[in-house]
Design a protein around this nucleic acid. Structure first.
Lengths: 380, 380
DNA sequence: GACACTAAGTTCAGAAAATGAACAAATCAA
DNA sequence: TTGATTTGTTCATTTTCTGAACTTAGTGTC
């Protein structure tokens, strides 16, 4: 179906997915087409079930009718290989999750493909229309993915090297499949479903056991020359600092990741199992807890400040699963960003904090499939 | 003339400017058009004088004829407002400088426009065809420029705030004019005329009295949300370090710029007026000189490593006017990059050093006009 | 409530751009 | 010399877009 859309239809779908519902006239202006051409394109897409008419807006003259993507014109499956068991969700074109289950995680791509194939029927069971209009599978994983979103070039976590996972799953299930790095998948889902819809250039920093980061530049996910754009976790923050598992020293990952914070706490003899625990300790005046949070926060803040200086994004979106940004840690992060960004820019770059639930990765994965459905792999 | 080209013609011109001479069949494949369509488009562009046939390539079957941009189909004037007197050059579509003169620098935009208008006749005097085909003026300056390349949002050096310089010059001379930040202009000239032609994503770091940086991402200059992408000079490199004129502390600019290196030398009592002098001192074992170069080199290396980690560019091009990269400074920069980049990427990002002459800025400025002529402001 | 006024969206003939297929052109290989 | 091969052209046809006139569905005014 994707391939059946003409290039103008594609452009229109893209514009709506970025800007939300628009009238025909508005779309004609945005795309630089005549009203006549728009009229035809819109009619075709409505007939195809891709668009539908929504609200009517009254002003002077004939009211305009806004067109939006029909949320149920396509459905997507998203799978996260970052957790065990691996979550598997079904969602519509708006990113709404309509079914959820899980499957065992494996390091063998064939076994993964098999598990997905076996899991699909029950996932789709209660949703016959989704079954019919299933348009793609997305898989999120920790590692480097090539620009075709088909091959995992390298994954330490899964111990992979050049694994054509997408092709394997595609062949096994018969469904169009794309894979993506975890942080990049989250960025796409924020662009497509989330709070960064209308922003052309922004970066997502995802804070969890590790630290991920991905950039949208001029409306497109920028993956970098080796798929490594956004590897902020291994920026040197403390020159000559603690050794990192990557082989260098003083990486951001060794200072500000949740894993690092917890390890530092343990080393200091604090009995903390979560960020909240450490925040609590700090708020009661525990010097070690304060020191750890300060170090972690200023490290992350410095890295983000560098990112702002280098790329001048329109938004920094920090996602975190655990803890909160209301405490000392968040305060220090914000302060460090302020003090390390050019004064005339400080405060000019919106920093948005978003607490995400356990579905982030799976939803991100699904958004990769949705993105390929909407925009297509080749951005003409 | 620019406006007279159709969108297909534009695309073709762009492809050739990126890939160099191509046969009609190759272009048809690259643009996804039929041979028939290509044939017509090529004919039109040849008739317009934009393209011309170059070498004939023999293989099996009918030989193919490569088409290239006609270097004399358009001429551009480039002016650098970074020096006094301000250089003013005339160049063709290949970036070849065919005339050169200078004009007095001023802080008054009206006076600048006047000086340009007065300088044009003598610049064009010996080149009647250039006079006829003059297609644009480019101006490079130190400061922030908005995305329309018309307004200087802010320039400390010129003490400007929201100056619509391009419009003023355009109105005074009657010639299409674009302005650009110095580092970004150099990046464009490297993409258009220089060694980064075929690379889609790369960063230029220009080392001089100050440090500039600009990114090409997916074949387009990325200027950032406030035009501030590439402000690497004010990344914090030494937290809590020396105060910078920007108001922060420990900026790269305070450690690694030529100005900083010279100031540090003076503070150490070294009688050095150029980088070469300091390199000489260092090579004879002068501890202070070695310390200064080490500090400056590792600062710059760290900043570039951060840039690589964050953006994973296909090339880092370091341009420098003064000194050389053969000595201690260059060695330390390279080492610092190596040790601060993810080991599995170290050495994967080509670092190219380019010594540039005094025409860089003016040629960069001209390339901005050329870019707008070739690709147009709106990238459709 | 009749009337003008406004702006959205449609229709349709015609222009513009791209295609497919057949063909001409220029070479190599045997 | 003949056939194979590939580039590039031509032309009728199809696809896509435009301009202008028109229909539609409201608001504002008297």
């Amino acid at each position: 179906m994707n391939a059946l859309l003409t290039s103008s239809q594609r452009q229109l779908v893209r514009v709506i997915s970025e800007s939300g519902p628009l009238s025909r006239t508005e779309m004609a202006n945005l795309l630089g087409l005549s009203k006549a051409a728009m009229s035809g394109i819109a009619r075709d897409l409505i007939d195809l079930g891709v668009l539908h008419e929504t609200e009517t807006v009254y002003g002077q003259g004939r009211p305009s009718v806004r067109l939006d993507l029909h949320p149920e014109c396509a459905f997507f499956v998203g799978i996260s290989l970052l957790e065990d068991p691996a979550p598997m969700i079904l969602c519509d074109l708006n990113g709404k999750i309509i079914a959820r289950q899980s499957m065992p995680l494996s390091r063998d791509p064939q076994v993964i493909a098999e598990a997905i194939t076996e899991g699909l029927p029950s996932l789709l069971e209660a949703h016959p229309s989704a079954k019919e209009k299933l348009s793609g599978i997305g898989v999120a994983l920790s590692g480097f993915v090539d620009e075709t979103q088909s091959n995992c070039v390298q994954s330490t976590l899964l111990n992979w090297q050049d694994v054509p996972l997408a092709k394997i799953i595609r062949e096994r299930t018969g469904i169009e499949t794309f894979i993506e790095n975890d942080a990049k998948a989250v960025a796409v889902s924020e662009k497509l479903f989330g709070s960064a819809r209308e922003i052309q250039s922004f970066s997502v920093v995802s804070l969890g056991d590790g630290i991920g980061c991905a950039h949208f530049i001029d409306g497109k996910l920028y993956r970098g020359n080796h798929g490594g754009a956004g590897e902020i976790a291994h920026c040197t923050i403390e020159p000559g600092g603690s050794p990192c598992r990557c082989g260098k020293r003083g990486c951001l990952d060794t200072v500000s990741s949740m894993k690092a914070i917890k390890e530092m706490s343990r080393a200091e003899g604090l009995e903390c199992v979560s960020l909240s625990d450490i925040e609590n300790e700090a708020s009661t005046g525990n010097a070690a807890a304060i020191r750890i949070l300060h170090r972690a926060g200023s490290g992350l803040g410095l890295a983000i400040a560098n990112l702002i200086q280098i790329n001048d994004p329109g938004l920094i979106l920090i996602t975190h699963v655990e803890g909160s940004f209301d405490g000392l840690f968040g305060t220090v992060v914000n302060q460090a960003i302020e003090t390390n960004v050019l004064p005339r820019y400080a405060g000019q770059t919106p920093i948005r904090i978003k607490r995400v639930d356990g579905d982030v990765w799976a939803r991100g994965a699904a958004s990769i499939a949705a993105h390929n459905f909407l925009i297509g792999p080749n951005t003409n």
